[in-house]
C-alpha cells in the first residue's frame, strides 16, 4: 500500500479522537488539548495531501496554509487558557458546569 495514504488517514483519526474528547471530557484543559489534537490532525491531512502528487515538485501552498493555521491555533489556545484560568479562579474548578448549580 502507498505509504502516502497512511498520513491523511492518521490525520482523520486524530481529528475524530480530538472531537470525541472535546465532547466527552468535562475538564477545560482536556477540551483545549482535544482542540489542539484536532488541529494537528487537520494540518497532517493538509500537508500529506499536498505531498501525494508524486511529482518531484512539492506544492508549497498547503505549507503556507498550515503556518497560518498554527498561528491561529496558538492565539486561540492562549485566549482559551486565559479564560480557563479566570473560570478556575472564579468558580474553583475549570469546568463548564450547568449554570443552575452554584
Amino acid at each position: 500500500m502507498n505509504t502516502l495514504i497512511v498520513y491523511p488517514l492518521v490525520g482523520i483519526g486524530l481529528f475524530c479522537i480530538g472531537l470525541y474528547a472535546l465532547i466527552m471530557q468535562p475538564h477545560l484543559l482536556r477540551k483545549l488539548l482535544a482542540v489542539n489534537i484536532m488541529g494537528s490532525g487537520v494540518f497532517l491531512v493538509l500537508v500529506s495531501l499536498g505531498m501525494s502528487n508524486t511529482n518531484a515538485q512539492q506544492d508549497p501552498v498547503p505549507h503556507a496554509m498550515i503556518i497560518t493555521g498554527i498561528v491561529v491555533a496558538i492565539s486561540a489556545t492562549a485566549l482559551a487558557l486565559v479564560f480557563m484560568i479566570k473560570i478556575a479562579l472564579k468558580t474553583g474548578k475549570a469546568e463548564l458546569s450547568n449554570p443552575e448549580e452554584k
Binding site: V35, M38, V42, V45, P62, A76, A80
Partner: peptide
C-alpha cells in the same frame, strides 16, 4: 470559543479536501 474553534477546524478540513 470552543464551539467556534470546532466549527473552524471542520471547515478547514473541508478546505484541505477541496484543495486536494
Amino acid at each position: 470559543l470552543l464551539v467556534t474553534l470546532l466549527g473552524s477546524l471542520a471547515y478547514l478540513l473541508g478546505v484541505a479536501l477541496l484543495y486536494h
